[in-house]
Amino acid sequence: MVNLELAVQDEHGIDVAARLKADRIELCSALPLGGVTPSLGLIEAAAGTTPVHVLVRPRPGGFEYTPAEVATTIRDVRHAISAGAAGVVIGGLRDGHIDSALVDGVVCAAGTATVTFHRAFDLLPDPFHALEELITLGVGRILTAGCPTVVADGLPSLRRLVSAAAGRLEVQAGGGVVPSLIPALVSTGVPAVHASAKTVVRDSGALTLGSAAQGPESGRETTDERTALRIIEALRDAGVRP
C-alpha cells in the first residue's frame, strides 16, 4: 500500500480529497508561494473529513526563522492540533543544518500528533545524517524529492533514503509528482506520495490584489480532481492501492 497525500489550499481541495478518499491532506494557504499556515477556520472546515496535516510556516521565503517566528510556529502548531489536525508539517534550518530547537519545540507542542519535516530537508548537505537526527527528535515523516529539484531527478536518492529509514520514519515522495511518474516512484519503495494536482481557475473581474499577482487573466490555483484521480488510478495500476 502506498498512501496518497494531497496538498490543498481551499474548500474545493478538501472536498476533492474526501470524494477520492485520499489518505490524508496537507492543508496550507498560498500554495504558489510554497505554502504558509492556513487560517484556523479552514483547519476547522477540513478536520473530521480526510485526516488533515497542517503546514505550519510563518512566511514565504527561506527556512531560517527568527526567535519570534519560531514562537509563532509553535503557537500555530498548538492551535492546529486543538482544531482537529492529525499532524503538522514544518521545517527549519540553522546555518545549513536542521534547526533542532525548532523541531524539538514542535514535537513537544504536537504531542501524539504526527510531525512531518518538509522539503527544507532537500537543502541539507548530508540527508542520511539528517534522517537519523530527525528520527532522534521524534519526527514521523519527511517530505522529500530526494534532491533540491523534482522527484524525477531524485529517484536513486529516494531509494537509498527508504532503505536507510528502515521503517523508523516514513519517506514521502513529493515535488513534481505527476501520474506518469507513479511507476518509477513506486519502484523506489516509498510508502507515500505527495501531490498538489493543481489547475488554474480563471477569475472574472479587473481588480488585481497583491504585488505578486499576475493580473486577473492569470486566475488562481486549486485542486484538479481529474489529475488527482489519474494519480490514484496510476497507483492502482501499479498494484499498491486497492
Results as ranks from 00 to 15, higher is better:
Asn3Gly: 10
Glu5Phe: 05
Leu6Ile: 14
Leu6Lys: 03
His12Arg: 14
His12Asp: 07
Gly13Ser: 11
Arg19Val: 07
Arg19Lys: 14
Leu20Cys: 12
Ala22Asn: 02
Glu26Leu: 03
Glu26Phe: 02
Leu27Val: 04
Cys28Arg: 01
Cys28Tyr: 02
Pro38Met: 06
Ile43Thr: 09
Glu44Val: 12
Glu44Arg: 15
Pro51Leu: 12
Pro51Asn: 13
His53Glu: 08
Leu55Thr: 09
Phe63His: 11
Glu64Met: 08
Tyr65Ile: 06
Ala68Asn: 08
Val70Cys: 12
Ala71Ile: 05
Thr72Pro: 00
Asp76Gly: 03
Arg78Phe: 03
Ala83Trp: 01
Ala83Lys: 01
Gly84Val: 05
Ala86Met: 07
Gly87Glu: 02
Val89Ser: 02
Ile90His: 00
Asp95Asn: 15
His97Gly: 11
Ala101Ser: 12
Asp104Glu: 13
Asp104Trp: 04
Ala109Lys: 00
Gly111Asn: 11
Phe117Ile: 04
Arg119Asn: 09
Arg119Glu: 08
Arg119Gln: 12
Ala120Arg: 00
Ala120Asn: 01
Leu123Ile: 05
Leu124Ser: 00
Phe128Lys: 06
Ala130Glu: 02
Leu137Asn: 07
Val139Pro: 02
Pro148Thr: 09
Pro148Tyr: 07
Val150Ser: 14
Gly154Ile: 01
Leu155Cys: 03
Ala166Ser: 15
Glu170Asp: 15
Gln172Gly: 02
Gly174Arg: 01
Gly174His: 02
Gly176Ile: 01
Val178Ile: 14
Ser180Thr: 15
Ser180Glu: 15
Leu181Tyr: 10
Gly189Trp: 05
Gly189Ser: 08
Pro191Ile: 04
His194Pro: 03
Thr199Asn: 06
Thr199Pro: 04
Arg202Tyr: 12
Asp203Ala: 15
Asp203Gly: 13
Ser204Trp: 09
Gly205Gln: 13
Leu209Gln: 10
Glu217Arg: 14
Gly219Leu: 12
Arg220His: 13
Glu221Leu: 14
Glu221Gly: 09
Thr223His: 03
Asp224Ile: 07
Arg226Tyr: 10
Thr227Ile: 15
Leu229Pro: 00
Leu229Trp: 09
Asp237Leu: 14
Val240Glu: 06
Pro242Thr: 11
